[in-house]
Structure formats: C-alpha cells, structure tokens
Design a protein around this nucleic acid. Structure first.
Length: 357
DNA sequence: AACGCTACCAACCGCATTAGC
DNA sequence: TGCTAATGCGGTTGGTAGCGT
C-alpha cells in the first residue's frame, strides 16, 4: 500500500517561501506553538503542506538558529563527529547548538567534503586515499633506482597525476617511498604486494599506514621508540588490535601521560575515529610538511603535523592556527583545550568515556 | 553585455521510524 | 497486533548569485 504524497493536493504551493508566508508561520507558531504539522498550514492560512512548513521552521525560521559562517571550532567538531557518526546529520546537528542538520549537511557537501577530497582524504572513511596512487609502481621505480632521493623523486611525473593530486598527497607518497628505502622496507613492500594480490581493502590500507608508521621511525630516530608489532614476523597480518596498539603506543610516545590519552585509550572507538581524533595514523608524514598547514587543509594538516610535536627540529615551522585547538597541539594546555572542545560538543558521550579531564 | 561555469543552499522527495488507535 | 497517519531523516534537485572569459 503506497502512501499518499503529502504535497500533491491542488492549490498547495511549492518552491521558495515568501516573507509573507514566513511571517504567517512565525506568527502562528508564536501563538500556538509547534503542534500538528498536518493541520498547521490550514490554521495558519498557508497554502503549503505540513511537511514544507515543518522544514521551513526547523531549517530556517526557528529563533535559535545560528546564521552565518561556520566557526573554526564548529567545522572541527563536524569533522570529528562525522568520523565517528558518518552521515548522521541530525545527530551531529544535535551537538552543534544553533545549527540544523540540513545546514551541516550542505556545508559538508559543499566545503568540507571537497576539501578532504582535494587533500586526498576519503571523506567517508577519513583515511588517506592511497587508492589514488599506484604505490607498487612507485615503490618499484624507487627501489630500482636507489640513487633517487625522496627529495628529488618526481612522483607527479611518474604518476601523471599532477592535476589530480595535490602537493600534500604527493608529499605523502614521497614519504612512503622514503620509508621504503630503509633497511626494513620489506614491511612496506609486503604490504604493497598484499595490495597487489587483493582488491584494496581497509585492512590493507591500514596495514600500509601502520607500516609507514614503523618505517618512519627510522627516518626520525630521535623520536621516542614505538611499540613494535614484531617486525620480524609477518607484518601483513596485523590485526586491528595490534594496529590499535601501535596507534595507542605511538600516541603515548607523542603526548606522554595525559587525561586525553587515557580517554582515547579507554574509548572503544572505531579505528577511523581514533585515527582522526588522535591523528596518529598520519604520523608517517614528513613532519616538515609546511603545506599541510594552509588555510584549506588545516584540520588534517593538524593531524599530520602531530609528528612535528614528536620529532620536528625546533626550526621546523608549526604555524598552527592559534584560534583553534587540536589534539596534536604542542603543549599540554592545548591538548586539554582540545579535550574541552570534545566536551563542548559532547563527543565523549559518543565514545562512552566518563573520566576525561 | 552575453554566455558559461561553479558554488551555494533552500526546498523537495521518498524511505524509515514512531505514535496513536 | 496490525494498520494508518505523522514525523524524522538523509539524499537529491533546482534556482540563483558570483565569477571568469
């Protein structure tokens, strides 16, 4: 049995609302409150269906709606929440006072999503889109020509992807190659072989990241030792628990003991959520990535730049936007500020964490 | 000035869920 | 318990403003 469309009756207006219609709706709701949307239009003298009235009210006319641009913190929260909740726009909106699900959804689709794509980050999984790169061919080229330094490596020329891949992603690929030239590059190459044998999967994808984390350690020996995942054993069979251990351990090395760390460790967070929240999965990045901290990539730039906290020489630039707070902030104060931000948007509720701070 | 392209966002559509009988 | 209406929600569309050529 089909449902009768709510707006197919003759005489019901569709399309943009006029200011007169808005005023009628506002007046009615101010007098009578929100009630039966079905009967509201007739009572309010509107030639609209109830659904249209409800949408107009909830998305536009409601007095508590905050208009205008999204703030830095709001955008940050949206990305964090989306990494945990996915396209649950209403749930996300419930944690952003004054913002509607429609507004957040639009903002995501028109701004954030595109920005992440430009950065080579999958807006669905919040992981780097390694599928954009034929890493195995890159690796082969690199290993067959050991004289090619990572700094000189022309990834874009090899890939023919210059119009598609931004400099940040190229830096990421270059970093992978650089890592692969280390003595234990078999970790990465095995991961790549795995990728060749099977269709790209999130598991292999994560293993690549994990491998990158391990190999990167050799590039920056000054950084705190990482908990290893038994490099001598088959690294391609890392299970998620191991990967989490690497991530958590990595972060432990990065942040030291902190309430934030405890929170993330205790949170039974999906891996991509943990990765986003801590940024640890991006630590294989070259810590000197200056272009990651530009105006259009700050969120993940921050995540990448966590490495700078660990190992960047004092001279390395960390031009973080001072108006915001991030997990990878260089001081404990900033980490706690970030944690406060999570509370502001009730993110710990999502993580089932009760003892942060 | 005219045209095409792109970005933005309000509004719509249809399915899912909930509430009431 | 099943049916139906009402409401909630997420995906998509279409109008329009802004910009470049």
């Amino acid at each position: 049995m089909g449902r009768a469309p709510c707006c197919d009756k003759d005489g019901l207006k569709k399309g943009p609302w006029t200011s007169e219609e808005d005023q009628k709706l506002i007046d009615y709701i101010q007098k009578h409150g929100q009630g039966n949307w079905r009967t509201l239009p007739k009572k309010a003298g509107l030639a609209r269906c109830g659904k249209s009235c409800r949408l107009r009210w909830t998305n536009y006319l409601r007095p508590d709606i905050k208009r205008g641009r999204f703030s830095f913190e709001e955008e940050e929260a949206i990305i964090q929440l989306h990494s945990m909740l996915g396209n649950k726009w209403s749930t996300i909106a419930a944690r952003l006072p004054g913002r509607t699900d429609n507004e957040i959804k639009n903002y995501w689709n028109t701004h954030i999503r595109k920005r992440l794509l430009r950065m080579g980050i999958d807006p669905v999984t919040h992981t780097p889109r390694l599928d954009l790169l034929d890493l195995s061919s890159l690796l082969t080229s690199s290993l067959c020509n050991p004289s090619t330094s990572s700094a000189q490596f022309d990834v874009s020329r090899l890939l023919g992807l210059e119009p598609l891949v931004n400099s940040d992603l190229l830096m990421f690929a270059t970093n992978l190659l650089s890592s692969s030239q280390c003595s234990n590059s078999t970790i990465l190459s095995q991961g790549l072989q795995e990728q060749q044998q099977f269709p790209p999967s999130s598991q292999v994808h994560d293993q690549l990241i994990s491998s990158c984390l391990q190999t990167q350690q050799l590039q920056y020996p000054s950084q705190a030792p990482l908990p290893t995942c038994a490099p001598s054993s088959d690294p391609t069979v890392l299970d998620e628990a191991q990967l989490m251990q690497v991530n958590a351990g990595q972060f432990q090395a990065a942040a030291g003991s902190s309430p934030w760390q405890d929170m993330m460790m205790q949170a039974n967070l999906p891996q991509n959520g943990l990765m986003l929240a801590t940024g640890v999965n991006y630590e294989g990045m070259d810590p000197s990535l200056p272009s990651m901290v530009n105006d259009t990539s700050y969120v993940y730039g921050q995540a990448y730049n966590l490495t700078s906290v660990l190992s960047t020489p004092a001279s390395s630039p960390t031009p973080l936007n001072s108006s915001s707070t991030y997990m990878n902030s260089s001081t404990e104060d900033e980490r706690e500020s970030y944690c406060s931000n999570l509370f502001k948007y009730q993110i710990p509720d999502l993580l089932d964490v009760s003892n942060c701070m």
